[in-house]
């Protein structure tokens, strides 16, 4: 059974676009106004990783659930759908 998030993500098919469909609007806000950085915790695919001075956005593993757009306390995430046919491809449920 897939225990870690890496194990889980590994099972999913992605048809990645070159260009990210997620964008941190202002990296300064993450650095100076957001001590909790909740997105790094609640994102179900750990797309957001704080690298000490900057938010890294691993859009390739995104489930397109929308939690980050809704949950970001500073509305600091520009969230679009990946280009048609791209992004996550669920095969089962």
């Amino acid at each position: 059974m897939a225990k870690t998030l890496e194990d889980k993500q590994y099972l999913i098919r992605f048809n990645c676009d070159q260009k990210s469909h997620l964008e941190v609007k202002d990296h300064q806000i993450c650095a100076t106004q957001c001590p909790d950085k909740d997105c790094t915790i609640f994102c179900p695919a750990e797309v957001y990783k704080w690298e000490g001075d900057r938010m890294f956005v691993g859009f390739e593993g995104c489930h397109e659930c929308g939690s980050c757009r809704i949950g970001c306390p500073h509305e600091n995430i520009k969230w679009e759908y990946p280009k048609g046919g791209h992004g996550i491809v669920f095969r089962l449920a």
Binding site: K8, I12, H63, C65
Partner: peptide, 10 residues
């Protein structure tokens, strides 16, 4: 059991 897929959604 064996995990086949992991999915997230709102």
């Amino acid at each position: 059991s064996e995990t086949q897929e992991y999915l997230a959604h709102l």
